[in-house]
Design a protein around this nucleic acid. Structure first.
Length: 255
DNA sequence: ATGGTAGTTGGACTA
């Protein structure tokens, strides 16, 4: 089974790329973030014609998550138990959607950005991660994958120039500790060993062309799921050219 | 310290 995660930065503006990506790599399950679409706005016809089911949560403007699957889509859950809200509760819920696809318990996660360390959104981010950790602790015994845009660069090597991030979110010790806590609990990050390199490049200043990016998109697997991983890669080509998302998809193969 | 680009919109906000 082949699963993938992609911060698509608007599903409506990139539906052609999504469909091409699914075909190009023969993907069974795709977790999307920043879909920026209500469920009634989703462009479903091309996906359904290709045999995929879709579950989604989101507003028309910000955030938004979805799961696209051709191996079943059961027990769909929007948000996790204890997930904190921030502002609009609908937008808050549009950061996590879970489902069972082909026997795998998969969560598409859009971790809050944090904005600036002095912003209330940064506290919200840390709280959100702590609550997710509490919920995820109960899923360690099943084949569980926590996939998505974590908005955390776990090491200095995951940033093109760590000096530029001295006072920025994504690299602070509390954020890195929050990420590490999942690993301490027993989750394993399964992509890094197979797929080095960045997953996100800012749109401006030709960051992609100069490979000045961040590694912030990850797949965390429970022990039994991690044991099934046979490979992974980052689809860098998807980030190239006009009309690309600012994130590249990350693909993982399971036995 | 600021601005650079992209998306949703139809101004301002988010990333």
């Amino acid at each position: 089974m082949r699963i993938a995660t992609w911060n698509v930065n608007s599903l409506r503006s990139r539906i052609d790329r999504v469909e091409a990506f699914l075909e190009r790599h023969d993907v069974d399950v795709l977790a999307l973030q920043e879909t920026k679409a209500r469920e009634d706005q989703l462009p479903l016809m091309g996906l359904q014609a290709r045999g995929y089911d879709v579950a989604a949560a989101g507003t028309n403007q910000w955030n938004g998550v979805a799961i696209i699957s051709r191996v079943g889509l059961e027990d769909v859950q929007v948000g996790f138990d204890g997930m904190p809200g921030f502002g609009d509760p609908v937008a808050a819920e549009a950061r996590a959607i879970g489902a069972v696809c082909g026997g795998v318990h998969l969560w598409s996660l859009y971790v809050p950005n944090g904005r600036k360390v002095e912003d209330p959104h940064y506290v919200y981010k840390l709280d959100w991660l702590a609550r997710l950790r509490e919920a995820a602790g109960k899923w360690l015994g099943e084949d569980c994958a926590l996939v998505g845009d974590w908005n955390i660069a776990p090491t200095d090597d995951d940033v093109f120039d760590i000096k530029q991030f001295e006072k920025s979110t994504h690299v602070t010790p509390p954020e890195r500790a929050a990420f590490q806590a999942f690993l301490d609990d027993g989750y394993a990050e399964v992509t890094r060993a197979h797929a080095p390199g960045y997953t996100y490049w800012d749109y401006y200043r030709q960051r992609f062309e100069r490979d000045r990016g961040l590694k912030i998109d990850f797949v965390l697997g429970s022990p039994s799921l991690a044991a099934r991983v046979t490979g992974a890669f980052i689809d860098r080509e998807e980030r190239a050219g006009t009309g690309a998302s600012d994130h590249a998809p990350v693909v993982v193969d399971l036995s």
